[in-house]
Computed example of a mutant assay.
Amino acid sequence: MGRLSGYERAGVTHPQEAPLLREAVSLLFGGETEAEATRWLTGQGMLTPRGNAFRREVLHRLLTNPRLAGLDENGEPLEGWDERVLEPEVFHRLQKLYEERSEKRGKSREAYDYLLTGGCALCDECGPAMIGSRVHAEAPPSYKCDDCGTRINADRLEDFVVEYVLAELLKPGARERLEKLECDIEAEIARLKRHIEDAAQRDASIGELYGRGLMVKAAFLAAQKASKEDLRLSKLRLKQLEQMTDLPIGDVHDLVAWWRTAPHASKRGLVLLEIEHVRVGRARGSQVPEKRVLIDWRQPTS
């Protein structure tokens, strides 16, 4: 096992590293974040035992390691550890602080409503839908492609898209175009509802073919799986489409003012109605949305 930061060897603290780690813990108790404590350690010139610069996740693993306080995995004192980087009571207090911060971060995450998830924001590098994500627990919300890692901050992308959506709605004929789009959406909703209602009949037909020996088991199982996935995607699509209808903007004269106070569901519905997809490319040296984002506008079919 390699040397643990803060120790020269088991039970013997490192004269330079141990005081720095204790000070980093004091910073956390004082309200600083792990990222800030990591930057402070880096500024003091502290490296890991392998000679690498500290990263936030490396510091977190270290500070949640009970050996830092001379304890085993069960919280019992290790034999022969006459010196400790942290006293056990300080270590336990630090773990309690982590638990409290974790609970707060969890609530903060739940409170953020992404505007362009659910298949609207796509990765322009490799194609899949982007998901709501964060670089780490303390980072701001962002959109990420799970396949290639393309990422953009949520506020940067959403502000850019909203600005263009509102600009489109101020153009002549915008209201009439919205009405046509809503008619298209309502027609698709009706088709999807029929498709979902017929799912049981389609499954029964598949089962009947298999029961009569007209389908091998492998094909039967594949058809069942495809049918379930089709039903799942249809229900998801229906949920998205239903957000785009009955938007309360018919009599609104100042759309910008309306946007500032509108419920999130109404904002999302308006954006999804106007936009088919938002395609996000890699930064390539520029974080400016104009150089990374392409908007595919929804067009009426009639």
Rank of each mutant, 00 (worst) to 15 (best):
E89K: 10
V90W: 00
V90T: 15
L94M: 10
L94K: 11
K96W: 09
E99Q: 11
R101N: 11
S102C: 11
S102T: 12
E103D: 14
K104G: 07
R105G: 05
G106Q: 13
S108H: 12
R109T: 09
E110V: 07
E110G: 04
A111D: 12
Y112R: 15
Y114E: 01
L115R: 01
L115H: 02
L115S: 01
L116D: 04
T117N: 05
T117F: 06
T117A: 05
G118T: 10
C120D: 03
L122P: 00
D124V: 00
E125A: 06
E125N: 11
C126I: 10
G127H: 13
P128E: 03
A129H: 04
A129P: 06
M130V: 02
M130G: 01
I131D: 10
G132H: 11
G132Y: 13
R134Y: 12
V135A: 14
A139N: 07
A139I: 07
A139D: 09
P141T: 03
P141W: 00
K144P: 02
K144V: 03
C145D: 03
C145K: 01
C145G: 07
C145S: 08
D146M: 12
D146F: 06
D146Q: 13
D146I: 07
D147E: 08
C148V: 03
I152M: 08
I152Q: 00
I152S: 00
N153E: 12
D155K: 09
L157A: 08
D159N: 13
V161E: 02
V165E: 00
L166H: 10
